[in-house]
Design a protein around this nucleic acid. Sequence first.
DNA 1: CTGAAAGCGCTTACAG
DNA 2: CTGAAAGCGCTTACAG
Lengths: 345, 345
Amino acid sequence: MRPARPNRERKITVNDVALASGVSRATVSLVLRGSPLVHAKTRERVERQIAALGYVYNRAAANLRTRTSSSVALIINDLSNPFFAEFAMGVGDALVGAGHVALLGSTGESVEWQEAVLGSLMEHSPAGIILSPAEHTDGPRLQRMLGHEPVVVFNREIPGTQWDFLALDNRNGARLATEHLLSLGHRRIAFFGGHADSSSCQERRQGYLGAMDAAGVAADPRWLVECAPNRVESRQATRMLFQQEHGLTAAVCYNDNVALGFKLGLMERGLRPGLDFALTGFDDIPEAAQTTPALTTLAVDPRERGRQAAELLLERVRDPDAPVRRVIAPVRLVVRDSSGTPLHD
Amino acid sequence: MRPARPNRERKITVNDVALASGVSRATVSLVLRGSPLVHAKTRERVERQIAALGYVYNRAAANLRTRTSSSVALIINDLSNPFFAEFAMGVGDALVGAGHVALLGSTGESVEWQEAVLGSLMEHSPAGIILSPAEHTDGPRLQRMLGHEPVVVFNREIPGTQWDFLALDNRNGARLATEHLLSLGHRRIAFFGGHADSSSCQERRQGYLGAMDAAGVAADPRWLVECAPNRVESRQATRMLFQQEHGLTAAVCYNDNVALGFKLGLMERGLRPGLDFALTGFDDIPEAAQTTPALTTLAVDPRERGRQAAELLLERVRDPDAPVRRVIAPVRLVVRDSSGTPLHD
DNA sequence: CTGAAAGCGCTTACAG
DNA sequence: CTGAAAGCGCTTACAG
């Protein structure tokens, strides 16, 4: 509610353009909106004045009059993660293409901050919200806060809400990774990393367990290791896995960062990734291809997901009564050195 | 200029709140803005109705009336780079704290796209612009386009413009890195990576040359190697450096990504980073601490830079006539394994 | 094809 | 302390 400072110079308005080109405001407005009602000569005259005066369309005023909005709130739980940064770029690109603009908010995985940011963004009357929610988001509370606002939820399901949802095909991705390791001869394969209470971790574990089961391999529950989805935690957590003698030869990691941390953990105890121990990741971050050995992983194309989220939201804005959608985006296995060559016992 | 769809339900306005609480619109407005003119009893009554009706303040309408703006355009050349993503988070945080919101645009280093994005964002009447410009931005053209709009330029100088500028202390950073390598006994030190026509590369090279000069070491011009500031290019470019026999023992790299690519290049030819060859980076991206050996680099705190940029801009908005500022943010040397132990010839 | 008038949701002097 | 009125920059029926 804090007021900002007014601009010094008076802004050029449709009025000024109308005066300068000798027509009414209404006509200028029609020209701006590309109406065919205006005579070509008149249009040309008006457009010349628009350029000459340096007129800038005031979309906020137009939106107020028409009770529309040309902005979309984009709330990202962790923008410092390249996956989400790429997603944000995709959203931004698609919105600009549709004449919209993204209002950016980042929450740093804090539910409180997320609420504050949402409150602030709501006052700018976005046409809708694209939300990559913070962990442990309170669904019903959020639902109450946002009312009938069009919302697309990305990546992480929010229990107790009825919004459009876009996510990766976590289950199939983990299944593909596991099948790949199985096909190389591995049997004692861990699933490593992620928080067991998050929907994406659960889905990936299901994919892993499904593949193990289908191959007739009994997965020891102790092969499911939880850890925060980042490199530091993962590196440390490898210790737990190797203190107990499980005889593991491979691991399906929750994501690339976990896999890269795991790799460091392997190297610390003298194991060579890809040779002594096989690994897979998830996300295909740029580094996956750059590291040595290069990381076998699942490509998820976050930029394209961003575009997709923007389109889903714009559709929802156009048709608020359409049935709620769950879109599961495909992922693609990218095989690289880290999963090694066929294993022969 | 494409119209969006109107919301279905009529929005709750100050009028509704006034009616429900039996006061005038003006009084509601005063309550919203926290004016002391309103009687405590009245205020309470109004606030109860605000909550009961679920009224949401329409900041766009208020801004229109007061001819102010509570948004800031944030244009980032490369959001997929964690450095800029962190910067964007810092900007966002500081803006939310000041009751403002960030309109996000990313350009992907394309000057054309940058112009399109700016044009689109300008129609939303931002209070000002924080611009991390694309390479080869045409200064005078941009200046003409943006007129007297408050602008803070980040990271990369735009020749031919007169805007506030925030950058890292590139010269001193490179100097510190070079001095560090010198202190370990290195003499044949390359400066590796970056585009020679970019201001930040020029500054870093100056810091490097200055330190070499001060140490009485003549830097061979062929030790200055250009390459795009990313890992892939850098890895390839190491070839050129080692094809010629320079007898180099260390390199100051343009940034961390270049250094990490360089490291891969070293390993490909059997050299051990930190043991056979010393390295430094610039930025202190999270990976710098995680890689093995950990990378000696310069910490630049991009999140804090974001906050700083937001504050600079808000000051500029408040006082458009204040003298133009050039703020050079300090950087801090972080010594890690990649620069190795003292060298004895 | 063009113009006069009303109104989007707010704030702000100005009276009372 | 509160209310009536004007106006921010636009668009949109409605006449002409």
